[in-house]
Computed example of a mutant assay.
Amino acid sequence: MYVHVNHLLPATTDSDFPRARRVHPATLALAHLILHPGRIATGFAAASFYGMRYFVDEELLAFLTSTGTRRTGAPDHVLLHPTRLLDLHRSTAVPVHEDHRKLKCADAHTTLSHMLESVSVPDALREQRWNVPDLSRIRSHLTPDFIRCVQVSDACHQSIGNVSPADPRKLRVPGGLDVMFAASVLGSTDVGAESPQETLLRLAVNDLAPGMRSQIPVFKEDGKLLTVSDLGWGERGLHLMYDGVHHRQREQRDHDSEVLAALQHGGGRVIRVTAGNLASMAKIEKLRERVVGALE
């Protein structure tokens, strides 16, 4: 397979961490399945076919394969899972693409379970490139590994278009996640989260008052939809907006000003949140104080 240089991923991630590979994960996974059509993509390899935008670029691409397959013979970006249950997985697998009906990836529940199982295992390199603050001082279960699992679950549910979190019992698959831990992750999942930073923001502040929800519609005076705020307490008129890199653009800044004016006109309040506000526990504590003050 030939990949045009213009189709390569940037040399660094959004967090300025050097990429281990620059070819799109779905392309790598497809190439592997063309070479090994009897295998089944799962975990982050399968998630790349489902359209998941986050994490798939750097995590290992997993494949289910028959017993007897040597794991050590795989490329550095591939993780092989030999299993006696390959036929069982194949019975629920789906085509990776309409143009490649014979090449399969695991169903969505198996895919999510295998991703969560992988991310729940501590990894020093992952901690460097996917830095998450430890929020266990706020709530004991909010360790970095747990937060990463919730970020993966949110992103996966976004990609497959689920309207509600999966049933944790469906994540009880061979080689997958412990069902009790799965229930805890899914209990913290919000399918409305559109980015990992929105997930982190939600987990950092949603204990401050009941009734917090994501994707709150904001309307103009004429009743037309103006935008949707990331998080907030709609009944209390408090909205949290996460400002990503695109908010630096002139057109986006003008839109943000219009949104702020519309909310303030209706008595609402807006707290704009940046990556810096979520970079450490100390910064998060200051953010929480701002939110508490706005809720009073």
Score class of each variant (00 low, 15 high):
residue 203 L to C: 02
residue 204 A to Q: 06
residue 204 A to C: 02
residue 206 N to M: 12
residue 206 N to V: 01
residue 207 D to E: 15
residue 208 L to P: 04
residue 208 L to E: 08
residue 208 L to S: 11
residue 209 A to K: 10
residue 209 A to P: 02
residue 210 P to F: 11
residue 210 P to V: 09
residue 211 G to C: 03
residue 212 M to R: 05
residue 212 M to P: 00
residue 213 R to I: 00
residue 214 S to D: 09
residue 216 I to K: 01
residue 216 I to Y: 01
residue 217 P to M: 05
residue 217 P to R: 11
residue 217 P to K: 06
residue 218 V to I: 15
residue 218 V to P: 07
residue 218 V to F: 05
residue 219 F to A: 07
residue 221 E to I: 13
residue 221 E to F: 05
residue 222 D to G: 04
residue 222 D to I: 00
residue 223 G to H: 04
residue 223 G to E: 02
residue 224 K to Y: 04
residue 224 K to H: 09
residue 224 K to T: 14
residue 225 L to R: 11
residue 228 V to L: 13
residue 229 S to M: 13
residue 229 S to F: 02
residue 229 S to G: 10
residue 229 S to C: 15
residue 231 L to W: 12
residue 232 G to F: 03
residue 233 W to N: 01
residue 233 W to T: 10
residue 234 G to C: 08
residue 234 G to P: 09
residue 234 G to V: 05
residue 235 E to Y: 09
residue 236 R to S: 06
residue 236 R to I: 05
residue 237 G to T: 05
residue 237 G to D: 07
residue 238 L to T: 02
residue 240 L to A: 01
residue 241 M to D: 12
residue 241 M to Q: 13
residue 242 Y to F: 15
residue 243 D to C: 05
residue 244 G to W: 05
residue 244 G to H: 07
residue 246 H to K: 13
residue 246 H to P: 04
residue 247 H to T: 13
